[in-house]
């Protein structure tokens, strides 16, 4: 099947007077229609940089210096501001970390949702409000909540509203950047179940970003692991769970104690260990790709 999103050699540099830092370094992957692709990594690994590049939301001093992003065959990096405006939300929508706090506090929930329809679909006020109520029910919030203000909803409900808003125009790709990080574990699970349900119903593809490997393994079809701007491993979730190949992936997976099974000692990544000069992904069969581990240098330093 033709991928909905295809990224080739994406390189993003954060440029300052003295030096430039690569936030993403020759990153390549694709997402098939209806697929959930997880992007894992720690803060600073470049996963949010990739997401913002796809949405063309990077701000100075970040610059895409190399690479291609294609959405449904169309070159995203050459779109004009006007093209972008209608393309965002309609084709690709994004839910940011703590997005629930970005709802307008002095506007009713229904009006905020209706805005999407009046702006993008040219609907009248009454029809837009009707669609807003439908949307709320889709994420299991009673339709009469259209009259509520954001502060009258719980954090979990607000995050559902944001997810409803993002899926309002039935985009083909939904980008979720740490969508549940600020939420308690019970609410987190409900939100994720909600996303899976919506995805089954509407059929969109998902780029799911998190640092929580257990969560990622449960949610995703395929997983890419980022480190220092590089993709170090890309594999089906099941293959990654059974046999992670890159030492960084292994450390990341060893960083999460399990909630069941025997209690075994874990080590995670030692303080001060760094990987440098990470090579391009190599195919190991079965859709499992890994950066060459023999030549990827492992540094052990006390400082820096």
């Amino acid at each position: 099947m033709k991928p909905v999103l295809d990224i080739e050699e994406l390189t993003v540099e954060y440029v300052s007077d003295e030096r430039s830092v690569r936030g993403a370094d020759r990153v390549s992957f694709h997402i098939a229609p209806g697929e959930i692709l997880g992007l894992a990594g720690e803060s600073g690994s470049g996963k949010s940089t990739v997401a913002h590049s796809i949405m063309r939301l990077l701000k100075d001093p970040a610059r895409i210096t190399h690479g291609v992003i294609r959405f449904d065959g169309e070159d995203v990096l050459s779109m004009s501001a006007d093209e972008l405006r209608s393309w965002r939300w309609r084709e690709v929508a994004m839910v940011f970390q703590s997005a629930m706090n970005s709802l307008n506090p002095v506007m009713r929930i229904g009006d905020q949702l209706a805005d999407v329809f009046t702006t993008h679909e040219g609907l009248g006020k009454r029809e837009a409000l009707r669609r807003a109520a439908e949307l709320l029910e889709l994420v299991r919030i009673p339709a009469d909540r259209v009259n509520s203000y954001p502060h009258q909803l719980s954090g979990g409900q607000r995050q559902r509203v944001v997810i409803a808003m993002a899926s309002a125009l039935r985009p083909r790709l939904l980008i979720l950047d740490e969508p549940t990080t600020a939420l308690d574990v019970v609410v987190q699970q409900e939100i994720l179940a909600q996303i899976q349900e919506l995805q089954a119903e509407l059929g969109f593809a998902v780029l799911f970003i998190t640092h929580d490997m257990s969560l990622m393994l449960e949610m995703s079809d395929r997983i890419g692991v980022m480190y220092a701007g590089r993709l170090v491993e890309l594999a089906p979730a099941e293959a990654l769970r059974r046999r992670p190949l890159h030492p960084y992936t292994q450390a990341l997976m060893g960083a999460f104690p399990p909630i069941s099974g025997p209690r075994v000692k874990l080590t995670g990544l030692s303080e001060g260990v760094r990987f440098t000069e990470i090579g391009d992904l190599e195919d190991t069969g079965g859709g499992h790709f890994v950066a060459p581990t023999g030549s990827s240098h492992l540094e052990r330093e006390v400082l820096r």
Binding site: V185, V186, Q188, Q189, E190, L192, A193, Q196, D212, S214, L215, L217, E218, R241, P258, I259, S260, G261
Partner: peptide, 20 residues
């Protein structure tokens, strides 16, 4: 409720909104 909400790649049964 808390334990069942912890992500667990080993778990086989899907999320059940009714049971929740």
């Amino acid at each position: 409720l808390l334990v069942s909400a912890v992500p667990d790649p080993e778990r086989s049964e899907p999320f059940d909104a009714g049971a929740r």
